[in-house]
Design a protein around this nucleic acid. Structure first.
Lengths: 231, 231
DNA sequence: CGATTAACGCGAAGTTGCTCGCGTTAATCT
DNA sequence: AGATTAACGCGAGCAACTTCGCGTTAATCG
């Protein structure tokens, strides 16, 4: 024996294994597009994919893991634009996000991923890491804009990109209404105006590309004793 | 016979029934604060509350319904401020939201509610209606600001409030990091700047409460002809 | 090309979660 | 206060989900 037992699909990844994997992930995606996470079950995935139920349980232990793998499989759905100006990039990216999340299967995937993350801690960290990475990647747009002098030097690129994405997730998960082009337009305008106004500056200038510190970040301007309503 | 059978708790709502209800909802809230939605189950709620499992299934048919009722039960967690100026109101409200969602139990509730809405269509509409209502209520701040001439007259109040809430849900559900005061400050600043810039004027973004045309509008400007699905 | 064994299909067994029927407690009405 | 019956506690029973053992197919290597 070489090593301890591995999960199915690791030692013999080609041919039939790859084919079943693709069939299953496609089935999950279609299932999400059809009835959403509500009707997603191992049973239905087995039927739609033609893969036997026991095989599903063997390779992926639950629907949660299935959704997780689909997430990483659909990683780069939104291309990063480069129009030459930051407001142009923000607008293009916002519309890209809008179009991507306008699709039923993407919408269903987002719902499913968040639902799954709420139950499975392992899925939760996977989700967090996934979006962290995309945030850093997309932050390049903002870093270019800063380099061009379009924004203050101490602007937090990841904060800007988070602000650009947030309204779409709000629309999908909370407001639960269709994602329309108007939302993309509004969001791009809003984020650009807010960034220019310095809403996303940190105060401490961090080198571009540096992952944010993991420590107890008491960042931001400390508004000690801020005179809000004391509930 | 009077009418058809009603759900338990309807015909005799006082005394023991009310006490059971409170014990159960408290148990659910505590359970969410402790281990989150991941470890929430009928079994555990029964144990913690001291209410029998069969009773839980009789009055609430599932954990999903339990979470739904807890949501409406916690409705008024964030007070609406009135500082005299719109930026002051936005800042106060943002910090109120930040403090409310900073608590573990609230955070767990949000996670749970979204997860539940992904599975149960009935819960989904309940969730949508709930947040719609809060959005309209909170929109009063913006309407006052418009009346004071602080914002353009065609500003969409609900869109502004959605923009104020979105970053918190993003932080909780997607970024999965703690909600800090800095986020509230940043969000308030951003929304105020964006609103002044006219990002939320009607025509750019549709109000949440209005009946929307079902036809998909024309897709926004394709300033980047990149393929949708890059893989 | 033939041997080896990982991955799969299949049905049955095992486990978990949910429901049902009945007796008991206490809310509501007279 | 006493009668009525809704709501609850309890354990058994049912159903859906998950796993197991074994025979078959086909990926990988000599």
């Amino acid at each position: 024996m070489t090593t301890a037992h591995q999960a199915p699909g690791e030692t013999r990844p080609g041919g039939r294994t790859a084919r079943t994997r693709r069939a299953v992930l496609t089935a999950v995606s279609e299932e999400l597009a059809d009835g959403g996470f509500a009707t997603l079950s191992m049973e239905r995935v087995a039927q739609r994919s033609g893969v036997h139920l026991a095989t599903l349980y063997r390779r992926w232990r639950s629907v949660d893991k299935l959704v997780c793998e689909l997430l990483t499989d659909m990683s780069s759905g939104v291309p990063l634009p480069d129009t030459g100006t930051l407001p142009g990039d923000l607008r293009a990216l916002a519309h890209g996000i809008g179009r991507f999340y306008g699709a039923d299967r993407t919408r269903g995937l987002i719902e499913a991923v968040v639902a799954v993350a709420a139950r499975d801690p392992q899925a939760a960290t996977a989700l967090r890491d996934f979006f962290d990475e995309r945030l850093v990647l997309a932050g390049a747009l903002v870093r270019r804009g800063i380099a061009r002098g379009e924004l203050p030097a101490d602007t937090d690129p990841e904060a800007v990109m988070a602000a650009l994405g947030a309204p779409f997730y709000y629309r999908i998960l909370i407001a639960r209404r269709p994602v329309e082009p108007g939302l993309a337009e509004s969001t791009a305008t809003a984020v650009w105006a807010a960034a220019r106004a310095g809403a996303y500056t940190t105060g401490t200038c961090r080198p571009a590309g540096t992952p944010e510190p993991t420590g107890p970040d008491d960042d931001g301007p400390d508004d000690d004793g801020a005179p809000e309503r004391g509930d």
